[in-house]
Nucleic acid binder design. Structure first.
Length: 275
DNA sequence: AGCCAGGGTCTGC
DNA sequence: GCAGACCATGGC
């Protein structure tokens, strides 16, 4: 990865990275395309990015900030070439892997990830994005550049489920409040979860109302980068039946979560179930 | 109108 | 442990 300062922007040359696939594969909900650029809110900041071939430009971001913050956020310090090579040992996995090449598992904050995937339950991606947008606008800090930060759990811990009415998030309102209270008091935290094995961390997350196995696994994979976690939603279940009736191939075990994301993207967008 | 969406809870066996 | 009703909302 080579990093270059280009009149106030940072231009990065990196292989195995697709901005579009990474931002559109269903792991994050706060980035939108705006012409050539992607604009989104992350880590308390509004950022704009664009990509041409292997060059990704972080607009208005200096190399120091890129290296300190955004390289890690987009998981650009991980060697996906090596991961992909391991996954390609299985022929079916190879297809999904080649199709999804460029997807990276972003390192998003745990609270934002958990909360987003609580909202995701029995819901579709466009509506999830809408609810999260209203959620941030209603309870988040305004930011330079016109966006709103993701609300802090402490802010929501003082609220009641009925305060979330304008979000139109349905039955999920009380789940968000319960999660906020458990995070605000430290009952659940990245530190506690980090000290536990996968099953223990899963169980602790599932003490939150509205958090079952799938949402817990999303929090572990996308919010704590536990790549052994394998979130199984309706798409993954369908895809597994069709593609891997005998279960996930052994070669995928250490990177089950990364394989999961390739399979999810493949199942949803390749026409596997629509043609 | 009915079905589906990155599910989970609660009840009853 | 497991099936089935139920849960809000909105797009198709």
């Amino acid at each position: 990865m080579t990093i270059e300062l280009l009149n106030g922007d940072t231009a990065v040359q990196v292989s195995d990275f697709s901005l579009e696939k990474t931002l559109e594969c269903g792991q994050c909900f706060r980035f939108c395309r705006d012409g050539e650029r992607w604009r989104g809110t992350a880590l308390g900041r509004v950022i704009e990015l664009s990509q041409r071939a292997d060059t990704v430009v972080f607009h208005g971001i200096l190399p120091g900030e890129f290296s300190a913050v955004w390289a890690d956020y987009f998981d650009l310090n991980t060697d996906y070439g090596a991961v992909n090579e391991a996954l390609c040992a299985d022929p079916t996995l190879r297809r999904a892997c080649e199709y999804g090449r460029g997807i990276r598992i972003m390192r998003q904050p745990l609270w934002e990830t958990l909360c987003s995937f609580i909202i995701s339950q029995n819901n579709n991606i466009p509506r999830i994005r809408g609810i999260i947008e209203r959620f941030c606008r209603a309870f988040g800090q305004p930011l330079e550049g016109g966006g709103y930060d993701f609300p802090r759990p402490e802010r929501l811990a003082e609220c009641d489920a009925c305060d979330l009415g304008e979000l139109r998030c349905g039955f999920r309102d009380r789940y968000i409040i319960d999660a906020a209270r458990k995070f605000a008091c430290g009952g659940v935290s990245a530190e506690k979860l980090g000290a536990l094995d996968l099953d223990g961390a899963r169980k602790l997350l599932m003490t939150i109302k509205g958090v079952g196995p799938k949402v817990a696994d999303c929090a572990l994979l996308f919010g704590l980068h536990r790549t052994e976690a394998f979130p199984a939603d309706v798409w993954i279940k369908r895809a597994m039946e069709r593609l891997f009736p005998g279960g996930l191939p052994e070669c995928a075990r250490p990177y089950a979560g990364i394989a999961q994301q390739y399979i999810f993207h493949y199942a949803r967008t390749s026409g596997l179930f629509s043609e």
